[in-house]
Write a protein that binds this DNA or RNA. Structure first.
Lengths: 339, 339
DNA sequence: CTCAAGGAGGAAAACCTTTTCCTATGGTTT
DNA sequence: AAACCATAGGAAAAGGTTTTCCTCCTTGAG
């Protein structure tokens, strides 16, 4: 039913090869023929069948994107960045949702392989040896994004932000503002997750400052509003001496925490300062606006896509880890401690 | 390099046809052969090349998704719903971002055609005659989602929510709570956009109640926080008699509006009630929590995908418009007016 | 004037499946 | 016992491109 290159060739009175050459500029064709063929292509609005093309060229111009959760704004921004450069370079993205589960992630890697994607951008939660091995076996190049692997350095190209350093900086920011009793409200304690890295950054900063915190100052859970609310509640109930500042593992956690504090009449930032992580659009919709550390997810997506394209086009071979810079955003929920 | 069906056939000592038959259960094969072939497939972890398959079967098991903005939480939820049923039915989605621009939308329709997608889910902003014509010309079935076309009924299958009715209900809700001076803070006034429909719902409810509002009670702009803030500011500055309630065209607008009111010391809901639209996750992260009308975007995505699959599998022919039910969610930002 | 070389175009192979069309075998029916 | 039929399996076509390999013609050099 659909029109094929053969139809064009027939109508133009030339061979199939010539039509192909006109379209791909792959060999000289005389101006008159070129003209005639072009016209007929235009007239019929002919587009070559990408399947047939892919079958022979072994290129589909599709890149797979694996993320844990499509509706999570962090991955929304990331995907938007990815799509932005992919579109610009003529690639279309195939988005897959893993739910953060390894079994599903493995399956998606397979699906994307037999769909013949030219490459894959992978945003995992806990990238262990099994996953890395699976990726290395694949036909296509992979670049990790948002989350580095737990395996020896630079086996797979990676674009991410420095979780340890970012939370270190956030904690340092509070320390520099005179706080000493600083608690941590974090995400999952999954082995190689970003949650663990963020906790490490917090610990580093305190240790460096020579401050020891009680275990009851550290709460972990999910990266969600609910979890933040409950974490803060435990913090509040289990400590007779309250912290003067809190580092949160995500903006949602921070907001949940603030909400709890509001509900018990503790003022932010007057009594407790709190700093988030991510810088969601929403952070500026609160009053006071949320202080946080900004991770440029859109830019991270862009960079990862560019990196992947380098591999796909063969202009790069060696894997490396690239960090995208974070930034402390001082807004209304943090304040210097009066001595 | 990659292993093909021929390799399997050779190794098993059977013909290519037999291997294909084993994999697709398309014709009886003796148990022994079947067994032997299966084993070798397993051993080599063979997966047929989807391109070659698609070329001959004319099915790719890919569905295209066109949305205005990947990072918008509304479309995030929608896409998640779509992906949920697609995955379950063996389809993979190809997500494209249009920026809400018609030119780009047309281009994407073309791209998805020559990628041979089996069908397309289209979330537009202003689906006019030109767009509808383009869709009807395509090889694949299309179903509109979130936004119906401006063209005569039921040319293209549609899954959406009733924007007019939803805002009508929201306005009615305020009326029923004793409010009479009700303002509207809306989205774009684009010709066939949901913004226009929502405004219509507002007008209908007031008209029905026999209430006339001054033009200065109606503000339009974008569906954003910023726009809500500014719209409310104008409302506040241009009216000597303030409304006692405000209907917002989106949650973000509502939140922006509330933020402005807070900044000038007007209490929500004590002095002004406000109701949003969408029910973003965020609505419950505010204090007071946002009253709103919930649109089940996830379910809408699911339903649209199911609808599309019916068309793709030929089990349905006739286009129709399906509405997904909205619901008024009473939370903290609305209150009955004391007489 | 002859021969080599280069340029323009066509025929056909290749890519990897599914599916149609045959063939052979063994069993059933009359 | 002959004719027929069903069944299992193979060979090859088809699907729509790109690309290799030819061929033919023109041009330039010797």
């Amino acid at each position: 039913m659909a029109i094929t290159i053969a139809d064009i060739a027939r109508e133009a009175g030339v061979s199939i090869s010539t039509v192909s050459r006109v379209m791909n500029n792959t060999k000289p064709v005389s101006p008159e023929l070129r003209e005639r063929v072009y016209e007929i292509i235009e007239k019929n609005n002919f587009k070559p069948n990408a399947l047939a093309q892919g079958l022979i060229t072994k290129k589909t111009n599709i890149v797979g994107v694996v993320i844990p959760d499509i509706s999570n704004p962090v991955f929304g921004a990331l995907t938007k960045g990815i799509n932005s450069v992919c579109t610009k370079k003529g690639y279309t993205i195939m988005v897959c949702e893993s739910g953060g589960e390894q079994e599903q992630e493995m399956k998606l890697l397979d699906v994307l392989e037999d769909k013949q994607t030219d490459g894959v951008l992978f945003a995992g939660v806990d990238i262990n040896q099994v996953l890395v091995d699976a990726m290395l076996k694949k036909q296509y190049p992979v670049v990790l994004v948002t989350q580095e692997s737990a395996v020896e350095e630079n086996v797979i190209d990676t674009v991410t932000h420095d979780n340890v350093r970012a939370v270190y900086d956030a904690t340092k920011f509070l320390l520099d503002n005179g706080h000493e009793r600083i608690a941590y409200l974090g995400g999952p304690k999954h082995d190689f997750s970003s949650g663990k890295k963020r906790l490490k950054g917090y610990r580093m900063a305190l240790e460096e400052a020579g401050i020891t915190v009680p275990d009851s100052y550290i709460e972990q859970g999910e990266f969600s509003f609910q979890s933040g609310y409950e974490g803060m509640k435990r913090l509040y109930e289990e400590n007779s001496i309250l912290p003067t500042a809190v580092v949160a593992g995500s903006d949602l956690i921070a907001i949940g925490g603030i909400q709890f504090l509001n509900s018990v009449g503790v003022s932010v930032p007057d009594e407790i300062s709190i700093i988030g992580f991510d810088d969601l659009d929403f952070a500026t919709c609160l009053r006071p606006e949320l202080s946080t550390v900004r991770i440029p997810y859109f830019a991270e997506g862009e960079k990862a896509a560019k990196e992947l394209i380098k591999f796909m086009t063969g202009s790069k071979e060696k894997a490396a880890t690239h960090y995208v810079p974070h930034k402390i955003i001082r807004r209304g929920t943090t304040r210097a401690k009066s001595k």
